Amino acid sequence: MLNRYHAIADAIALLFTPYAEVAIHDLASQKLVYIANNRSQRELGEDSNLNDLQDNLDLQVLGPYQKRNWDGGQMRSISAVLRDDNQRPIGLMCINLDITVLSSAKAALETFLSGSTLQPQPAVLFQDDWQERINTFIHQWLQQHQQTLSTLGGPARRALVEALYHQGAFRGKNAAGYVAKILGIGRATVYNYLKNIKESV
């Protein structure tokens, strides 16, 4: 009856190839009866060593929990209790995901993005950098209004241009064109927004 779960094991292993191994254990025989993408170098028919789990078989899922592979790889595992048509536990499907590469990538990203070597922006370079000020303001405005550049509609774009206007963003040369490029609209549209804003002030 555990054969019905083989395709599921294969599908999970393929989806997360080459990092996932899926093993199926027979609770009656306490043996490993199927394994997809064998990363642990186990053999079919070997002992499952599941005696300690007998008292937990009323659960549907066990884990996730940490394991260590034979090669030292860091594994994150989770097990699902398999049942027959009468809901009696007959097997255990264990999904073992090797997260060694992900952990290394996470550590590298944390080191790279930590900013420990960053210094404050040099005032001599940024005091006249109107583009930097526009970028910063737009980013903060979008966060405050829970928006993104890709989701901004016409009214929101006009509101953003108006906010930029009141911040003095358009004093810089070619600022209107720069804002138009960021918002993905024509320069004429920005000029029209500004004209209406100035008339309403």
Rank of each mutant, 00 (worst) to 15 (best):
Q147A: 15
I8V: 15
I90G: 09
I12G: 01
T189R: 10
H139A: 13
I197Y: 02
D85C: 03
L160K: 06
L102A: 07
N38M: 06
Q144P: 01
N37L: 12
E110M: 12
Y178G: 05
A188T: 14
A80R: 13
Q167D: 11
A176Y: 03
Y5C: 12
S48D: 07
L59E: 10
Y193C: 02
W130N: 08
Q127I: 09
G73Y: 02
L53Q: 12
L164V: 09
I90Y: 10
T17W: 15
K173D: 08
I134Y: 05
G115N: 07
L113N: 08
N56T: 01
D98N: 15
L2K: 12
R68G: 02
L32S: 10
H145I: 06
V22N: 01
L92E: 04
D10M: 12
Q60C: 05
E199H: 10
G186I: 03
N38Y: 07
G63N: 09
R187P: 04
E110P: 01
Y178K: 12
A13M: 03
Q30K: 13
A159V: 03
R4V: 11
P120V: 06
K106S: 01
G186M: 04
I35A: 06
R76V: 10
L59C: 00
G91H: 03
L142G: 12
S79G: 05
I99K: 00
L113Q: 09
G186T: 13
D84A: 03
F137E: 09
D58A: 06
D55N: 07
H25E: 07
L109M: 10
M93E: 01
H166Q: 10
H6W: 08
D128Y: 15
W70Y: 13
M75I: 15
L194Y: 04
Q41R: 15
L14I: 10
Q143L: 09
T151M: 11
Y178Q: 06
R4A: 11
G168R: 04
N174M: 11
V33L: 05
L109S: 02
G73F: 04
L62R: 00
T148S: 12
Q30L: 12
R4P: 01
Y65I: 03
Y19K: 15
I182L: 15
F126C: 02
I35E: 10
G63W: 02
Q127A: 13
V179L: 13
R83D: 07
Y5K: 11
N49L: 10
D58L: 04
L152E: 11
S200V: 08
E110K: 08
L149V: 14
R4K: 14
A163V: 08
R42Y: 14
I95K: 00
V190F: 05
T17C: 08
Y193E: 00
Q119I: 13
A163T: 09
G154K: 00
S200C: 11
Y19S: 15
F170W: 01
Q121A: 15
I197H: 00
V22G: 03
Q54T: 14
D71K: 08
S103M: 13
P120F: 04
P64K: 03
Q41I: 04
A188R: 14
Q143F: 07
K198G: 04
N96L: 00
S116W: 06
D85W: 01
F16R: 00
I8W: 06
E46S: 15
L44T: 14
K198W: 02
G73E: 08
L82W: 08
V33D: 08
V61G: 03
A13K: 03
M93A: 12
V161W: 05
E21L: 04
A163R: 06
E162K: 13
C94K: 04
N69P: 08
S79V: 01
M1W: 06
